[in-house]
């Protein structure tokens, strides 16, 4: 009994670790898409940021500087996305795809040239990474059955970015629904003409949203290479950006449901390694690939309306053109 409880605790523990980059990227997507700018480029921004963080941390030995570099790199891509989609009213999906492919190539080329390790960056020492924090009293309470061990194993012992990501969920909800900025953000994603005729600049608002998305993707990328991992590997995002997008859709473009979707995907990911070769009663051996594909299947089913309807912000994907 105790064994399976600890198995569950360790599962939950890895769920939070795996959910963090998804959540950060999904919240990035939240800001961008609620403002009416579709962001397929979460993947590319995260990848670029992961590389910038690892490279900077490798050169300077500082995880903090790495984080700053990650945010900077991601912001550059976000600005480019804004330039194409907001200033030049380009196709948002095409722009996102372009950024993803560019990031994939650029990180590999630069990584190879700078570190000559086949695209990887050197392994970062613990000092150049975000370390795990032991929360107050965690050691003391550890002995208490059930709750104490839950606190020690699941709540405590993550790095700062995990806590930041979790705290960003209520913060995002508050910003979106309780502030002037949030009101305008949601309005510009639904009906930009209403925002324009209210005397508010549509491009300025959308640029702000896109830059917030850049900031959050930057943190997500830094998490991958300098907190969860200890260095950059070629294409290390491996579809997490798309998965985050799927979580955002599954969460119907709302912060808390998006968090739940991220946790679900992360739990599936955590289970995957644990279920390898496990025979389920009645089902036989569950193919690992099925669990791997589960988030994508769920998203397709949801989008097809088999699990309730996901209605995107009305103006998303459409460049704003003043009409006569």
């Amino acid at each position: 009994m105790m064994d399976s409880y600890f198995w569950l605790l360790s599962l939950l523990d890895s769920m939070f670790r795996l959910a963090t980059p998804l959540l950060l990227a999904a919240l990035a997507g939240f800001f961008s898409e609620r403002a009416g700018v579709v962001d397929i480029g979460l993947e590319g921004k995260m990848l670029m940021a992961a590389f910038a963080a690892a490279a900077t941390a490798a050169f300077t030995g500082s995880a903090g500087l790495g984080l700053l570099a990650a945010i900077g790199a991601s912001l550059v891509l976000a600005l480019l996305h804004g330039f194409a989609c907001i200033t030049h009213r380009g196709n948002q999906v095409v722009s996102g795809v372009a950024l993803n492919i560019t990031a994939m190539g650029l990180t590999a080329v630069l990584g190879n040239a700078w570190f000559e390790m086949g695209g990887r960056t050197p392994n970062l020492p613990a000092t150049a990474r975000f370390g795990e924090l032991t929360l107050p009293l965690a050691e003391t309470l550890r002995g208490i059955p059930v709750l104490g061990s839950f606190y020690y194993e699941v709540i405590s012992g993550h790095n700062i970015l995990v806590y930041l990501a979790m705290a960003l969920v209520p913060l995002t909800a508050w910003v979106a629904y309780r502030t002037r900025f949030g009101l305008r953000l949601r309005a510009v994603g639904e009906n930009p003409a209403a925002v324009d005729t209210a005397g508010i600049s549509v491009p300025a608002l959308r640029y702000q949203a896109v830059l917030i998305a850049g900031l959050l993707c930057g943190i997500a990328g830094a998490y991958l290479s300098t907190a969860q991992g200890a260095g950059f590997q070629t294409n290390m995002t491996a579809g997490k950006g798309y998965l985050a997008l799927a979580a955002l859709i599954l969460g119907k473009w709302k912060p808390v449901p998006t968090l739940l979707a991220c946790l679900l995907f992360a739990a599936a990911d955590a289970l995957q390694t644990r279920l390898q070769g496990v025979v389920m009663p009645g089902l036989g051996e569950v193919p690992v690939q099925l669990i791997e594909a589960l988030p994508y299947l769920l998203t397709v089913l949801l989008l097809a309306g088999f699990m309730g309807k996901a209605i995107p912000p009305k103006a998303s994907g459409r460049p704003y053109v003043k009409e006569r």
């Binding site: 196709n91 492919i101 560019t102 080329v109 040239a113």
Partner: peptide, 25 residues
């Protein structure tokens, strides 16, 4: 040796950006 073949991928991305997303520029 310091240039890797992923340079092609960069060029590909940039072409999509210019020919696709920035076609109106």
């Amino acid at each position: 040796p310091s240039i890797s073949r992923e340079l092609v991928v960069v060029i590909q991305g940039v072409v999509i950006l210019f020919a696709g997303a920035l076609e109106h520029m």
